[in-house]
């Protein structure tokens, strides 16, 4: 049976989501999306220009991809909600990635405003994927607010530092029953692989692919790494801490004894 991730009624095979900012050109971006066979891409609504006469980024997203607009630029819940509604009005999917950032230096999200926006938009029927700082209480609130997944950061956006927040994300993976998708900070395919190995449902990568010398090659590398990490997780990677069991139980003899008795 194919291993799929289900979000918002859609079944997704490729667990690498890709962000569309920072590419040298739309054709370069398209090649990266094609090469990686990504199924979910996020696009900042602020960059979409549907007026005639200019290039439209959406024309360069391969057919069949789920386009998840994001609320980049929103400084509070109210702005995120308005951007989400504009996105829906412009004819895209019901999917929305919430980004509420009041900190331009580190681009760290405002979890409180993110919860508020999630609650409003989920009620309006959006499939809401909120970008967040990994925090269990906030993740639980996001679940209660109707989020379709949570997207904790591995390290600050664009930093390429990898999964610096691993301990906290692992807690989310264990405790949160909706998909945990690591978004931001993954600098190398090995980082993405690591996230998948410890049980994340997917990862979202932009900078590391977009500014690589060969973005298409790097996108493929990330895609393969994500698939490998996922397979390792499903195959019971001992260190993953979940889903692993010894083929012959080490304490099985105790039960055998009890049977004898």
């Amino acid at each position: 049976m194919t291993d799929t991730l289900e979000i918002g009624g859609r079944k997704i095979v490729n667990r690498l989501f890709i962000g569309t900012g920072k590419f040298a050109s739309y054709p370069v971006m398209r090649r990266a999306l094609e090469e990686s066979r990504a199924e979910v891409v996020t696009v900042a609504l602020r960059r979409v220009d549907s007026s005639s006469g200019t290039e439209n980024i959406l024309d360069y997203v391969p057919k069949g991809c789920i386009v998840m607009p994001n609320t980049s630029g929103a400084r509070n819940a109210d702005e995120a909600v308005r951007i989400a509604r504009l996105a829906r009005a412009s004819g895209s999917t019901e999917w929305i990635k919430i980004e509420v950032i009041q900190d331009n230096k580190y681009l760290l999200p405002d979890n409180l405003e993110t919860v508020k926006a999630t609650e409003i938009l989920a009620k309006e029927g959006f499939v809401v994927l909120p970008y967040m700082s990994p925090d269990l209480s906030m993740a639980r609130r996001l679940v209660d607010a109707g989020a379709a997944a949570v997207m904790p950061l591995g390290s600050p956006i664009g930093s390429n530092r990898g999964v610096k927040t691993r301990e906290l994300i692992e807690i989310l993976v264990r405790e949160i029953k909706i998909p945990v998708i690591v978004d931001a900070g993954l600098g190398a395919p090995s980082d993405a692989c690591e996230c998948m190995q410890f049980g994340c449902s997917a990862v979202l990568v932009n900078t590391a692919i977009a500014i690589a010398e060969d973005p298409a090659g790097m996108a493929k590398a990330f895609s393969d790494a994500v698939a490998a990490g996922r397979l390792a997780y499903r195959s019971g990677l001992p260190s993953a801490g979940t889903g692993a069991s010894a083929s012959s139980p080490l304490t099985g003899f105790l039960h055998e004894d009890s049977h004898r008795q």
């Binding site: 590419f23 040298a24 050109s25 739309y26 609504l45 602020r46 960059r47 979409v48 220009d49 200019t54 630029g73 702005e79 308005r82 951007i83 504009l86």
Partner: peptide, 16 residues
Amino acid sequence: LKEKGYQPVLKDWMRI
């Protein structure tokens, strides 16, 4: 810009 491998960004905000 394209020649130099840079994407010209014409729109990076909208009134909300």
